[in-house]
Write a protein that binds this DNA or RNA. Sequence first.
DNA 1: CGGCGTTTCTTGACTCATTCAAGAATTGGC
DNA 2: GCCAATTCTTGAATGAGTCAAGAAACGCCG
Lengths: 141, 141
Amino acid sequence: MGHTDYEQLLRGASLRVTRPRVAVLGAVTENAHADTETILGAVRERLPDVSHQAVYDSLAALSAAGIVRRIQPSGSVARYETRVGDNHHHVVCRSCGAIADVDCAVGHAPCLTASDDNGFTVDEAEVIYWGTCADCSLSQG
Amino acid sequence: MGHTDYEQLLRGASLRVTRPRVAVLGAVTENAHADTETILGAVRERLPDVSHQAVYDSLAALSAAGIVRRIQPSGSVARYETRVGDNHHHVVCRSCGAIADVDCAVGHAPCLTASDDNGFTVDEAEVIYWGTCADCSLSQG
DNA sequence: CGGCGTTTCTTGACTCATTCAAGAATTGGC
DNA sequence: GCCAATTCTTGAATGAGTCAAGAAACGCCG
């Protein structure tokens, strides 16, 4: 993806096209599941003087627009990804915090319907699989 | 549940029975989905001088032993519950943060098996349903 | 192209849940 | 009851994230 693609994504969401936002969008695309600090570092390779606040603001704007998804497993800081709208989920390593994508477990998004919604209007189901990644399994026996 | 029940729960998990732990276990039982500060408040009704650190330590010990479950939806502080081992999930209100229990969506824990585990050894699937609670739906039209 | 209102960015201070550390008290086995 | 190990108290520190005020950038409109 080039700059123009990111620009169009932003314009399509009625967001102003600013250099920090384009850079943040690029950084999230190239660093799936990265935390804010990693994204800040990646953004500063292109725009050395962006403030951390601009990155926080951009991530918030992009998340609100649905262009990026924010995930935050227990015990982790916020992480971001650009793969949105396909109902995929995540496996998280309890040991090192590594995250990988998994497609919906049982085919046709069955988890989207709660059996009893307690009066809530549910619009999304988020599934987090907890376990141990291959590396940690090896190093721990 | 009385003190002796909590004591037996603790002993059964090979945990020392201390007054803070018994009080924390009682507070979590009586305040499902409460955050740490609420639990601290509830504990201090019985033990006015417990330190916040004792509550943090107790919650960590109880969580590690599997007696309480820690949950932390994005954007929320840590919350705790004693309903464990029955594979239930949660609905979270995007507006006010309210949490309610939901039983597993499709009967026999289908969400527990990821379609592709990326080399991870998965031991638990956590489902969070996001939406709007009844109160917030009303007040927002 | 140039002005203008609005949005966004910079700078820097601040919040607050959670963790860390050192020493005192408690627990439970003997 | 005594002792070693664990847990609690006290108080400071950490760090992701937020708040606020003024400067800069965006993009609409003429």
